[in-house]
Simulated scan of single mutants.
Amino acid sequence: MPTRVHEFVWPDRVVIGTIGVPGARTFYLQVRAGKALVSIALEKQQSTLLAEKIDEILDQLITVDGNPFSIPTGTPLELVDNEPLEAVQEQFRTGTMSLGWDPTTAQIVIEAHPLAEEDLDPDADDNAFLEDTDDDSEMLRVSMPVGTARAFAMRTREVVGAGRPTCPLCGYPVDADGHSCTIPES
């Protein structure tokens, strides 16, 4: 089967956002260029790691001797996007992701592939949607300039941080209806 590639080069918008309340949020990577809009679901941990790794790549590029790229050390204020997600129609749930640097365009490149059937628990009821279909496989490829990448990483950290507070004793999230934990013995 051919792979259907949703490719965005110099997108108008690329953000992480959520739908739902803390503790029951679904995270989305949403990309728009013109009228083309793609939203893919991903895990909170994937969002966190994506922001961390984008900043790591950009920070490493700053330290390269003779670096011909103008990499911002902070987030350009004019690129900050605090708007909510646009109409979300989930294209797929993300499994494998890759992140890289394209020196020919001076852009961060994100690739996301759907969660593979073998990645899911075969006994879980949630797998019912994986009926045998002849649909082509899909992937999302987004190339974004360095300033946009810094703004993306900043927003992602803010979105992730807006979830449930963390218990100072055990480190697990505190639910709205309470929390009980056991303090680890020393």
Results as ranks from 00 to 15, higher is better:
Ala33Met: 14
Thr105Ile: 11
Ala176Tyr: 11
Gly17Lys: 05
Leu130Phe: 15
Val109Gln: 05
Phe8Ile: 00
Asp12Arg: 05
Ala124Lys: 10
Leu58Val: 04
Asp121Gln: 05
Asp119Pro: 03
Gln91Val: 10
Ser180Ala: 08
Gly161Asn: 00
Val9Ser: 06
Phe152Cys: 00
Asn82Ser: 09
Glu56Tyr: 14
Glu83Met: 13
Ser47Val: 02
Gln60Glu: 15
Val160His: 02
Phe27Cys: 04
Thr48Leu: 13
His113Phe: 14
His179Lys: 04
Gly171Phe: 05
Tyr172Arg: 14
Pro173Ser: 01
Leu115Met: 11
Leu49His: 13
Ser186Gln: 12
Thr3Ala: 04
Gly163Phe: 04
Leu85Val: 06
Ser98Lys: 09
Glu52Ser: 09
Val31Tyr: 02
Gly171Glu: 02
Pro114Asp: 05
Gly66Glu: 12
Cys167Leu: 04
Asp12Ile: 04
Gln60Pro: 10
Met139Thr: 12
Thr182Phe: 15
Val9Tyr: 08
Ile110Asn: 00
Val160Asp: 04
Glu117Gln: 12
Thr96Gln: 14
Val31Thr: 09
Met154Ile: 01
Ile54Arg: 00
Asp102Ala: 15
Asp119Phe: 03
Gln30Lys: 06
Glu78Asn: 11
Asn127Ala: 15
Cys167Lys: 02
Met97Cys: 07
Met1Asp: 12
Pro84Val: 10
Ala112Leu: 01
Met154Ala: 10
Ile40Ala: 01
Gln60Met: 12
Pro103Arg: 09
Lys53Asn: 12
Ala128Ser: 14
Val80Trp: 05
Ala151Gln: 00
Asp59Val: 07
Leu49Ser: 12
Thr18Ser: 10
Ser39Ile: 01
Ser39Gly: 03
Ile62Cys: 10
His6Ile: 06
Pro103Tyr: 09
Thr26Ala: 06
Phe8Arg: 08
Gly95Asn: 02
Asp81Pro: 05
Arg13Pro: 07
Leu49Ala: 14
Ser137Tyr: 08
Met139Leu: 14
Asp126Glu: 15
Ala51Phe: 00
Pro68Glu: 13
Thr94Glu: 01
Val38Phe: 05
Ala116Gln: 05
Gln45Val: 10
Gln45Lys: 12
Cys181Val: 01
Thr104Pro: 09
Gly161Ser: 01
Ala128His: 15
Pro168Glu: 11
Ile16Gly: 07
Asp121Lys: 08
Val142Thr: 06
Arg150Leu: 00
Gln45Pro: 06
Phe8Asn: 04
Asp121Met: 08
Ala153Val: 03
Leu99Ile: 06
Thr166Tyr: 05
Ser143Asp: 09
Ile183Glu: 14
Thr96Leu: 13
Val142Cys: 05
Phe92Arg: 01
Met139Phe: 06
Ile16Met: 00
Pro122Asn: 06
Pro11Leu: 03
Arg13Asp: 05
Ala87His: 13
Gln46Ser: 08
Lys35Pro: 07
Gln107Met: 11
Gly147Leu: 09
Ile108Glu: 02
Ser143Gly: 14
Ser70Gly: 14
Trp10Lys: 12
Asp134Leu: 13
Leu29Arg: 03
Ala151Pro: 01
Gly100Arg: 09
Gln46Thr: 10
Val9Arg: 11
Glu118Gly: 03
Thr75Ile: 04
Trp101Thr: 10
Leu85Trp: 07
Ser180Gly: 11
Ser70Thr: 15
Pro72Gln: 09
Thr73Trp: 13
Pro114Leu: 07
Phe8Thr: 03
Leu115Phe: 06
Glu78Trp: 10
Ile16Glu: 01
Cys181Lys: 02
Ala116Asp: 03
Gly161Arg: 02
Gly34Lys: 12
Asp175Thr: 13
Asp81Met: 01
Gly66Met: 10
Glu138His: 12
Thr105Cys: 04
Pro114Ile: 03
